[in-house]
Design a binder for these strands. Structure first.
Length: 571
RNA sequence: GCGCCUGUAGCUCAGCUGGAUAGAGCAACGGACUUCUAAUCCGUAGGUCAGAGGUUCGAAUCCUCUCAGGCGUGCCA
């Protein structure tokens, strides 16, 4: 029970409670007058001399209280009752900061939560079991996944893991645009290859897909092979003149390729939604009808337009082209309406930023429907472009020209762990330069190895300890009072802050925070390792340090797992 | 032109959603293995946080403008 409490209440939360209770006492006895409890911010000072935590509330209250901030702080501190004995010192400093120094024992007590929770340390129930759907990758089945999809896969998958860890009921979804102009283009490209037409030939389709993989598809089609992809099982007809059969086969073939790449990347989906199904189920026509009824559409130049400018767009958009077919965002609206109807009040779409113009359009369409969907639904996480460098030069990514680096290349050349970690190192908003040569040649410099090495080193210590008759103790047998060096306490403090890192990372959809945290924790361990021996003549000290490292290994493992990166025991 | 993202050490990037003297990793230089994995550690050096205003006790962080780069602005997705 007490372990449970320990698990869920962070040090910051405990201090926040101390301050809030003190404020209430101040108001009760009249030593502070405003009577209104403001947001209480507890932060970690950049400078360790200022203590473990600082509270800024006195400075914020100074104006309302009409007192100097330091006066407010002094009054407040006098009313703090630290019943749990957390603080070894509470000081007032600078313009009115209240600085808290946490006692060594109080810090060490937090390790109990790690033993108690194990693989679930860092998890919370913040999501309260609510449903959330995360759509990511959603590559068109017109070619292999490239490095940009890889970034989306890594970010989307880790967001899912983060949400799952923080108590959400997560559905991972992949949307295949297997209808529309690009798919027609794909079919024509494959057909041309079947007929021996090459790029450059006057008969080659304009904007045709020129990649070599199109030849593979054509060969397979002519050989009448069978492809299994998801619930699709397509056997090639083999007739170069049957464009419809070529389209079905090509889509299934490329879906299978993408599925295999994602499998190799350890990315899995719960639901695959097909754009073509939205048509066959009549959802596209239905949404068109609803939009027309909404009064937000008009006909012009033989096309049907949605007045997206009613909802913040800078120009109206065509829904139904003059040739009678629909633009991509109509099925997109139908798809998102279906998400809503499936009960997902929380939806996150992870996409490349090159598709960001779709955000306004989809939201506008959903608002036009007036079915109670909130403004700003769904959420979007847009990752910026990945620039690929090879041989010191930028590799221009163009699917149609057939020039790109595939995700499969990266996994084969760099390894899954390093590729994932690399993609997760930067926040989605930042552009990413992926230097293939660097990633291949200097693999050992990749930060992922730094973190993994920390885990492997700890495991190695455990092995050596076992050889000398030391078992890793449980909390009850670990004399935590023996801990206290600067290096040890650095590790303890980092371990205690892990749940907040996970929570913040999940809340902001920013996986890179976990990656940075792990590097910090690994660094704290490596520093400790180089200055202290774990296995010594002193049994007590040895036991205490083994326990501390067991906690560190646990958290390294938990964090790496969130990133989809392995935590090896040997390297 | 307009919209979104970005601009922080030589390079690649963090900066906990407004706090105290702005950080890390590479690269450079100097050190540390007869001791649990040197894929490691310690130290030195490196800054007009693109620029200019504004908001307030306090700004890399918020608002405006300027400059620079990326993406978008298709009856492509």
């Amino acid at each position: 029970m007490s372990d449970r409490m320990e698990l869920e209440v962070s040090m910051k939360d405990k201090l926040r409670t101390l301050v809030r209770e003190a404020l209430e006492r101040c108001f009760a006895d009249g030593s502070l007058a405003s009577g209104e409890i403001p947001a209480i911010v507890i932060e970690q000072p950049a400078n360790a001399d200022h203590g473990d935590f600082a509270c800024t509330v006195a400075m914020g209250m100074a104006k309302i209280e009409r007192k100097a901030p330091r006066m407010v702080a002094e009054t407040l501190v006098k009313h703090i009752e630290d019943r749990e004995g957390l603080c070894s010192a509470i000081d007032i400093a600078g313009p009115g900061f209240i600085n808290f120094r946490i006692g060594t024992e109080a810090w060490c007590r937090t390790l109990g939560a790690i033993e108690a929770a194990g693989a679930r340390f860092g998890c919370s129930t913040a999501g309260e079991g609510r449903k959330v759907q995360v759509e990511f990758v959603s590559a068109n089945p017109t070619g292999p996944l490239h490095i940009g999809h890889g970034r989306g896969a890594a970010i989307g998958d880790t967001i899912c893991r983060l949400l799952d860890a923080t108590g959400w009921d997560v559905t991972r979804e992949f949307y295949y645009n297997d209808a529309g102009a690009q798919i027609a283009n794909l079919a024509l490209s494959v057909q041309s290859r079947c007929l021996g037409i090459e790029p450059g030939d006057p008969r080659w389709p304009a904007d045709g897909y020129q990649g070599d993989y199109i030849m593979d598809v054509a060969r397979s089609y002519l050989a009448r092979e069978t492809v299994d992809a998801g619930d699709q099982h397509v056997t090639a007809v083999g007739d170069p003149n049957d464009l419809d059969a070529i389209r079905r086969f090509a889509v299934a073939y490329l879906r299978r390729e993408q599925d295999q790449d994602l499998l190799a990347f350890d990315v899995h989906f719960d639901v695959y939604s097909l754009e073509s199904n939205l048509y066959t189920e009549g959802r596209v026509d239905a949404v068109i009808r609803q939009l027309v009824e909404s009064g937000h559409t008009y006909e012009q130049d033989g096309a049907l337009w949605l007045r997206t400018t009613d909802f913040g767009d800078d120009k109206d958009r065509v829904m139904r082209k003059s040739d009678g077919s629909y633009t991509y965002f109509v099925p997109d609206i139908a798809y998102h309406l279906a998400k809503w109807e499936r009960g997902f009040t929380h939806v996150i779409n992870e996409q490349g930023a090159d598709h960001h113009s779709t955000v306004t359009r989809v939201r506008a369409g959903l608002q036009a429907l007036s079915v109670g969907i909130p403004q700003g639904w769904p959420d979007y996480v847009l990752h910026q472009m990945v620039t690929v460098m090879r041989g010191g030069e930028e590799v221009k990514i163009s699917k149609r020209a057939g020039s790109y680096v595939t995700l499969r290349d990266m996994i084969d050349e760099v390894g899954r762990d390093a590729t994932r970690f690399f993609f997760l190192m930067r926040k989605p908003d930042s552009q990413l330069v992926f230097d293939i040569d660097l990633a291949k040649q200097q693999t050992l410099e990749n930060p992922v190895y730094y973190v993994q090495y920390a885990h492997a080193r700890i495991c190695s210590i455990f092995e050596n300890a076992a050889d000398k008759g030391f078992a890793v103790p449980c909390l009850a047998d670990a004399p935590l009072a023996r801990l206290g060096t600067a290096e040890e306490m650095e590790i303890v403090k980092l371990l205690a802050s892990y749940p907040e890192v996970v929570e913040g990372s999940a809340l902001s959809f920013e996986p890179h925070r976990v990656a940075y945290y792990l590097q910090e924790l690994a660094g704290a361990f490596h520093s400790f390792y180089n200055r202290n021996r774990v296995i010594t003549e002193e049994g007590d000290l040895t036991a205490a340090r083994l326990f501390l490292l067991a906690c560190a290994a646990r958290v390294l493992n938990n964090g790496l797992t969130l990133l989809g990166v392995s935590a090896p025991e040997k390297m």
